Amino acid sequence: FGEGKREVFLSGEAYFEVVHDEGHPFVVTTDLGNVRVYGTQFNVRRYVDEEGIRATLVDGSVGFAKNGQKEDEYIKIEPGYQVRYEEGQEVVVQKVKVYNEIAWKNHQFSFERKPLDEIMKDFMRWYDVNITFEDESLHELYFSATLNRYGNIETLLRFFEAGYDIKFEINGKNIKVRRK
């Protein structure tokens, strides 16, 4: 890291466990803002194809500041909370189910009342596939589950087909979602 502060530049998602060191602050820098760490375990999610940034605190203490804000303007959150920010909006702090936010690091997907199109975005990232919807109304189907992340996406897709009126057509890396 060099002299002064410990800084990581992030595009994507990462889970951190950081030891507090007053003389060497740890900062996660993204294009929307920075997460300053005070000794903790936390998750930061900032994908460029998503509207905002999310920082979820597992243990310890972190703060968030939008780009251009000073050190004394960081918003600190407590364990079990998440800070969310979308450019041009207000910063939101809310209580979350931490496991849902960090399940990926344990090779799982975990979601509650999440729309199918958002779930499929995560699947596209993890499995390097392209998923399209034949019927736009399918975007609004909501699901709750904790699923293992298998080496093959087909196993996960069959779970959705088993309980709902949807079908996945797989053609190489292209997958189409349609009604049965």
Rank of each mutant, 00 (worst) to 15 (best):
83 V>P: 07
127 Y>P: 05
112 E>S: 07
65 A>L: 04
151 G>C: 15
21 D>M: 05
176 K>D: 08
37 V>R: 04
1 F>I: 05
138 L>E: 05
157 L>A: 15
176 K>S: 10
121 K>F: 04
177 V>P: 14
143 F>H: 06
175 I>H: 03
117 D>K: 10
64 F>Q: 05
6 R>V: 13
106 N>V: 09
133 F>T: 11
59 D>F: 03
2 G>P: 15
140 E>W: 15
147 L>M: 05
57 L>H: 13
8 V>R: 09
23 G>R: 12
134 E>T: 12
94 Q>I: 11
71 E>N: 04
78 E>G: 02
91 V>F: 00
24 H>G: 14
105 K>Q: 13
130 N>W: 01
55 A>D: 03
33 G>C: 01
81 Y>E: 04
47 Y>P: 03
177 V>C: 01
103 A>T: 01
63 G>A: 07
136 E>G: 11
92 V>C: 06
143 F>A: 05
3 E>C: 08
130 N>C: 03
102 I>T: 04
139 H>Y: 00
55 A>Y: 06
29 T>D: 02
175 I>P: 08
107 H>F: 13
160 F>G: 04
37 V>W: 05
54 R>M: 05
175 I>T: 03
47 Y>L: 03
127 Y>N: 00
169 E>K: 10
138 L>G: 07
25 P>I: 00
44 V>P: 01
131 I>Q: 05
54 R>I: 02
120 M>N: 11
142 Y>A: 10
164 Y>T: 04
5 K>H: 15
48 V>Y: 11
101 E>S: 12
118 E>Y: 14
45 R>K: 09
69 Q>V: 03
